[in-house]
Amino acid sequence: MGLTAETIERSQNAGTAVRDIYLPPERKKISGGGVPHVSAKKFSIYYGEFEAVKKVNADILSKYVTAIIGPSGCGKSTFLRAINRMNDLIPNSHTTGALLFDGEDVYGKFTDEVLLRKKIGMVFQKPNPFPKSIFDNIAYGPRLHGIKDKKTLEGIVEKSLRKAALWDEVCDRLDKNALSLSGGQQQRLCVARTLAVEPEILLLDEPTSALDPKATAKIEDLIQELRGSYTIMIVTHNMQQASRVSDYTMFFYEGVLVEHAPTAQLFTNPKDSMTEDYITGRFS
């Protein structure tokens, strides 16, 4: 078991660009979507000497949901976090190659990572609401970016909570501490908080791994709701989840992007034998 030279060659040089839109009948095609929103060009991420993500070539298509799967330690989270430069927090990390967002290099000299992160929102593995009220949690981002008016903030809070399908559950206790919510509610609050700054891309880093099945189903429904409005990337351990929520799937193994294809195709007819082994559960 391992990566074949052929796979590595194809991944790192030829590229795994996905242009064809192959959707199962139950998934609607999105008008105006499907253009490369984020593009990786021979993009590598290093922790010191260690190359955690190896020369990835890929286009993430706008407005669709892309799932990233792979065994733990394969670099999938690293890749996701690289997109809004959260890896900057890790000392000794650096990148080579290019990562383009709307055609501009994310790691370019004149990139302001603060503005970048406003465009590319992120939801983390464990729900991480601030120890503030629900309202203040949602309003945190807008306030940061200069919105002071109470009315406007209230509007944003309601809109974001509605988008995150949380409004009905919390509308009467917006001033309660966000930590008093259940785990699933907290995670949807985190989604709402991210939506409040009006990002274009939503990065979800294993958003359901700390949740029970019921809460997980709600998050998955939420992703379906948001599909079409945002470009969504979701890292997941759970292959069923990937097949349920995503339009495209990327499979990483040991830092190499082994396969990137429409989900329906990747799960039924994988091109690479590694992918097949993984999705059929021969290793994990």
């Binding site: 501009e104 990139t111 302001d112 465009k119 274009e200």
Partner: peptide, 9 residues
């Protein structure tokens, strides 16, 4: 949002 590559200054 205006120009979408607004993160470049």
């Amino acid at each position: 949002q205006g120009r979408s590559s607004a993160f470049v200054v």
